Structures are given as C-alpha cells and as structure tokens.
Amino acid sequence: MRIVILGAGQAAASMAARLRANGHDGPLSVIGVESAAPYQRPPLSKAYLLGEMGVDRLILRAPEWWREQGIELRLDERAVSIDRDRRKVVTDRGEVEYDALALTLGAAPRRLPAEIGGALPGVHVIRNLSDVDLMAPEMQPGRRLVVVGGGYIGLEAAAVARKLGLEVTLVEAAPRILGRVAAPETADMIRDLHRAHGVEIIESVAVERLTGDDRVTGVALGDGRTLPADLVVTGIGIMPETALARDAGLALDNGIAANEFGQSSDPAIWTAGDCASFPWRGARVRLESVGNAIDMAEAVADNILGAARPYAARPWFWSDQFDAKLQIAGLGADYDRIVTRPGDGAHGGSVWYFSGAELRAVDALNDARAYMIGKRLIEAGRSPDPDAITGTADLKALLA
C-alpha cells in the first residue's frame, strides 16, 4: 500500500513515525510546501523569536532518520489538486499516486485586509519559520510594536517583544482578551501579568486602518486614536487549510470533516491536526494544539493500517508568557460555573470550569499541581465537589 501524507508539520511527522513503527513497510511519502523538514511550531513565537533556540532544535527528526526509515520527504513542493478518481496528488512538480492519502495541512493565519493596510511592509503574522525570520530583525529595543488581537499568539508575541525591549501596545476589538478561549477570570490573570510587565492593553476598540505609504507607521483605532507603530503583529486567529479538500469535493465542517476514525468523506482519504474536525462528546470539534496533532495523527495511522480505533481526544494546551506558564486541560466551552483557587505567587492560580456538576476544564497559571490534578480528573471522567476546590484544601484529596 502506497501512503502519501500531504502537509509536513507535527501531525505529518507523528503519523509517518507511527506508520513505520506499526510495521508499514510500503512506500511512504510526506509532501510539504515549506523548505524546512517538519519542525515544532510553538517555540516560534517564544524561544525561537527570542533567539534562545536555533532551527536545529526546532527540527523534529534529523535528516538521517527519514532516510533510515525509508520515508520520501518531498519539501518545497506545493500540492495543486487531488484527483480522487485516479488516486493521485497533482503538485507543482508532477503527480504522486496513493492508495491512502492523509491530509495534515494545518492552518493559515488570518490577515488584516489589504484595503486597510494589512499588506504594508512591517505588518507581520506568526505561523511558520519564514514569518518569524522576516519579523525577528525588526524586533529591536525601543521600537514601537502594536499587536492586533488578544488571543494566545498575540499575547505571546507581546511578551517576547517586551522581553526584547520594545514598547508594546495590544489592541483587542472584543470586550476582553482571550474572549473566545478562556473565562474572564483567566483573562484577568493574564491581563494583570502583561500590565505588570509594561504592556499596554486596549480592549473593546477595533482597528480601522493601518497608516503608512512605503511601510506601516501607525494603527488608527475606532475611537479616533492613532497609535504610532514601527511594526505590527496580527494575531487574529487561524483558518484551517481546506482549499484542496474543498476542490476535491470532500465534506467540510469547520475544517475537513472526519469521522471518529479520522476518515474523510472519501474512504481513501484521511485527515488529522489543525485542519481536521471530528466528533467528540456529541459535538464536532477542531483542536488547534500540538497534543491533538500528535494524538490524532497516531490514531489515524493506526486506522489506515486497519485498527478501526475511534479517536478519543484528550484536549490540553499551554502558553508561555514572560516567565509564566499557562496550562490548560479540557475544553471550557458551555460552562455555567467558575471556581477559582489562588496560587502561591503574585501571578498565578487556577480556574475550574463546571457545567452543572461536571468538571469541563482547568486553566492553571504557574500552578502545575492544579493542572495535573485537574487533567487527571477530566480524563478519568471524575468531577469533584466545586466547594472542595476553593480555599486551602489539599487538591490531592480530590483524587481519592
């Protein structure tokens, strides 16, 4: 069986390794549009941008590993279309036959519209190596950065810029930062952390346009202010890469729609990672995380080889900002009660999400114990009494 993996990120690397580990000894190709071999993305907006991690440490597998495993790694090659009838991927270099095709295409960053200045030089996004390599030389002490978007990527970029000595203002159009992904209590902790480090945060104000002719010089806001800017970073979310799947006639639903096994509407085509949505606890979800990319890719690899194992997602996430670590277990959607617990330091604590009596998620800032206990409870399907979390009660007792 000839297996082709389209997309060369974390999910692709995990899937290829699992296929070989499970005994697939047939032809196996990984095709990616970037020139770099599969690498870690989370450090891009943190350690790599800070200059604390080089490309060699980002790369997931050394070149000799791919050769030893007999995996054809086709880099700097763009897929143009999928011919489902002939089972061929058409690329800008030719055609590649497959018996099973896996789409691990990831996602692309949303950009500000060109008509309001989003295409001006000096306006950056953070998604891949080339994005950060283009931006890094501009991150000089004393320069003025405006970050558009108060999600995790925008906040991480703001934190790194402050550590590098830039003057940073973050603008969020919604009423508060982290509005789509975290409770107000978590947003309050993160806002306090940033303000303590000198980041100016403006909420409930939209960007009207970016100013400048040859490059960006400012950000005009809906309240009449114009913020001077030597550079702008936009962190306004990502969109799953679905164009190839759409043009091939595959079903879409907040990404490439997969069944519980990771199979698309075409039985010969599978999908995993940021581009894929799948059934989970009676709903359809799409998870943008390294953990999901690895776990789903490995489950799909098993299923391509006939395991018929439903993918049971165990959502977890993290975000490093300044010297603080935010760790998240579960999904906090559809909650109706929040329980908070203080941490040991000035910037720390945990936020517990409940829907009725069910524990749905835990956000823990500088509180690894709360994260680990919450994660174990959620994965075991156990929900403690919310009143037992508050105060100084021993969290370990919740596991008894």
Score class of each variant (00 low, 15 high):
73 L>S: 02
253 D>G: 13
193 L>M: 10
241 E>D: 13
360 R>G: 12
220 A>D: 11
152 Y>A: 12
121 P>T: 08
386 P>G: 04
3 I>E: 13
295 D>A: 15
92 D>S: 02
38 P>R: 05
337 R>L: 04
295 D>Q: 15
400 A>H: 14
198 G>K: 01
206 A>G: 09
35 S>Y: 12
90 V>S: 11
55 V>W: 12
7 G>W: 09
329 A>V: 10
317 F>K: 03
89 V>P: 08
185 E>R: 04
161 A>V: 04
16 A>C: 02
325 K>T: 11
314 R>M: 04
96 V>C: 11
195 R>I: 13
352 W>K: 01
400 A>E: 14
110 R>C: 09
343 G>C: 07
147 V>Y: 06
85 D>Q: 14
303 N>L: 00
241 E>T: 15
44 L>T: 05
363 D>V: 06
109 P>H: 07
112 L>M: 03
136 A>M: 08
287 L>F: 01
39 Y>S: 08
310 P>L: 05
89 V>N: 04
350 S>A: 14
389 I>L: 15
156 E>R: 08
1 M>Y: 09
42 P>R: 01
97 E>C: 02
127 R>T: 05
306 G>E: 03
132 V>R: 01
26 G>H: 09
22 N>W: 14
269 I>F: 09
201 I>G: 07
51 G>Q: 06
314 R>V: 01
360 R>D: 10
295 D>C: 10
283 A>P: 12
34 E>H: 13
195 R>Q: 15
146 V>T: 11
319 S>L: 02
256 I>E: 05
133 D>Q: 13
119 A>M: 08
379 E>D: 11
8 A>S: 15
321 Q>C: 00
34 E>G: 13
209 R>K: 14
395 L>R: 00
350 S>P: 11
97 E>M: 01
11 A>M: 00
376 R>C: 04
88 K>E: 15
193 L>A: 08
315 P>M: 05
278 F>T: 03
333 A>W: 12
178 L>D: 01
319 S>E: 08
139 M>G: 05
136 A>R: 15
8 A>F: 07
69 Q>H: 04
346 A>K: 14
135 M>L: 13
185 E>F: 00
169 T>H: 02
382 R>V: 13
349 G>Q: 06
343 G>V: 00
394 D>E: 14
236 I>Q: 06
307 A>M: 01
125 V>I: 09
249 G>A: 04
10 Q>E: 13
263 Q>N: 11
259 N>R: 01
34 E>C: 12
114 A>I: 08
232 V>G: 11
118 G>P: 08
305 L>Q: 00
124 H>N: 02
158 A>Q: 04
207 V>C: 06
370 A>K: 06
262 G>I: 11
340 T>P: 04
179 G>W: 15
366 N>R: 07
266 D>S: 05
204 S>K: 06
269 I>S: 07
16 A>I: 00
275 C>W: 00
274 D>M: 03
246 R>N: 12
6 L>E: 10
136 A>D: 08
65 W>P: 01
